[in-house]
Design a protein around this nucleic acid. Structure first.
Lengths: 267, 267
DNA sequence: CCGACCTGTATTATGCATAATACAAATCTG
DNA sequence: CAGATTTGTATTATGCATAATACAGGTCGG
């Protein structure tokens, strides 16, 4: 019952890639539980590596309990290790949907400090030159399995209104509005990045794993930034979801978000 | 000039680790623009590797335009490299915003066939058991630089209404509606994944790069799937963006998408 | 102006990842 | 049963990442 994540990831570049690729395919369902994957020779050709290299990747997957190898028969996917449905967050409401399995999330504070805002933060938040911000990094876990790594920047004048302890327990929105901030609008953008060493350790993934990256700037009614969020999510445990409806008619027909209609069966 | 994306991330395990570490520190501002980082010998000791290894990491960072090396003086951070504006797509309207640079996108058809739908596609689209689909893969480029890799699945009965040539020139939406399909709603989810060999080649990135992954199921008014899209985007050239507004009052205060208000200056 | 520190370059040596190949044992299929 | 395919295992060879070291040439501060 260990399933300690990627305790034994292949050192070599190629083997690691095969390992991560297959793990990804299993994680998002392209390789479903019970499927038996191509033979080692076949995989070697597909990835353009030798069979030895494929084997090293499969060794790691096997150690993770994600596959089961049978001599003569082949290798089948044992996706039970991943069986837990990922946490989904509705992109429009910003609310995680954890209800499904009675999941409860916990937050752990990794670092906490006050200091000058990094350039790109100051620019996005339209802060004054030397304005200081609170910089907090925390990791959220569901069922003791970390799925998101969050770094927030909040202007010091606002951040002084709540404590370090508040941050570990209460969503930042609540804290902001409780501090008298009138939230106006937000702008978020999504991309992808690779897991660096520190983040990898915090999220218990292999260095070089793919992560979903989200940046959000929240402004108050005057247009001044009150929160800058830089979030990294484990793709195997987290998804951004969104429902759209086609409305209008003729040439003005267009898409419109259907809030709260997220269905979980897309993947 | 060239700035060929992150095509050259170090092969070796240690060098890559140093590379990712430093890139992370630059990305989140711990190493700000203009800072000059420790000497190569110093870095080598810090990371517990040889100077040669550090150099390989720095070579990659330099190729990414993130640092600038000066003989005798030292190495300084050039965080501007993150500033190159990528193609942005509004998550709510599904419309790419290319106007900024007069970019025009072109599409290239990589493969095209009819066959049985993969399991996860059939499940998501609620297709009949042996229902065949058209499977098309194409790559979109802006200024001859590929940024997205799209695979679409469309039920054969619908797909027969347009030609292979149509697919390379006209957005799929148009084709569907022209085929008499009444589009009802869509469900999309976003995640991240690693670039496999084929995709890496098509997108001209290194194998093992992080890619933004988007899946979308479009249904008609009866709820039957008419399109399944699996898209992969280069994060250095593409972003999903979305603007939100805080509306309502009191306890019913919540977020709502602000369509068409995307601002480009978040990153 | 001199010494300290920096990047650039070269050399040699070692270990590990990878490739290529062959064969054994188990399993499935016709 | 026979042949094909699979995983398991072993062997050998090669290339590359890394380490350790040395030195040349530029830059900066005292």
């Amino acid at each position: 019952m260990d399933t300690k994540g990627s305790s034994l990831l292949p050192e070599g570049a190629k083997a690691r890639l095969v390992y991560l690729s297959l793990k990804d395919e299993i994680a998002d369902g392209r390789l479903a539980d019970g499927d038996n994957l191509p033979g080692e020779q076949r995989l070697a050709e597909t990835f353009g590596v030798s069979r030895v290299t494929v084997r090293r990747a499969l060794d790691a997957l096997s150690a993770d309990g994600l596959i089961e190898r049978r001599v003569g028969s082949g290798t089948v996917v044992r996706a039970n290790g991943f069986g837990k449905k990922p946490v989904a967050m509705d992109f429009t409401t910003l609310m995680p949907q954890l209800v499904e399995m009675g999941q409860s999330t916990t937050a752990r504070l990794l670092s906490f400090s006050y200091g000058p805002a990094p350039d790109f933060v100051a620019r996005a938040m339209k802060l004054g030159a030397d304005e200081k911000v609170q910089i907090a990094t925390r990791v959220r876990s569901a069922d003791d399995r970390p799925f998101s790594h969050l770094t927030t920047y909040v202007p010091e004048t606002i951040a002084r209104n709540y404590s370090e302890h508040d941050l570990a327990t209460t969503p930042l929105f609540k804290l902001l509005e409780r501090s008298g901030v009138h939230i106006g609008d937000a702008q978020q953008s999504v991309s992808a990045t690779l897991a660096g060493p520190e983040v990898a350790e915090a999220l218990e993934v292999a260095v070089g794993s793919a992560l979903l990256s989200l940046r959000r700037v929240v402004r108050d009614e005057t247009g001044k930034g009150v929160e800058y969020l830089s979030a990294l999510y484990r793709p195997d445990m987290f998804r951004l979801e969104m429902a759209l409806t086609r409305v209008g008619s003729g040439s003005s027909r267009h898409w419109e978000p259907a809030i709260g209609k997220t269905e979980a069966d897309v993947a």
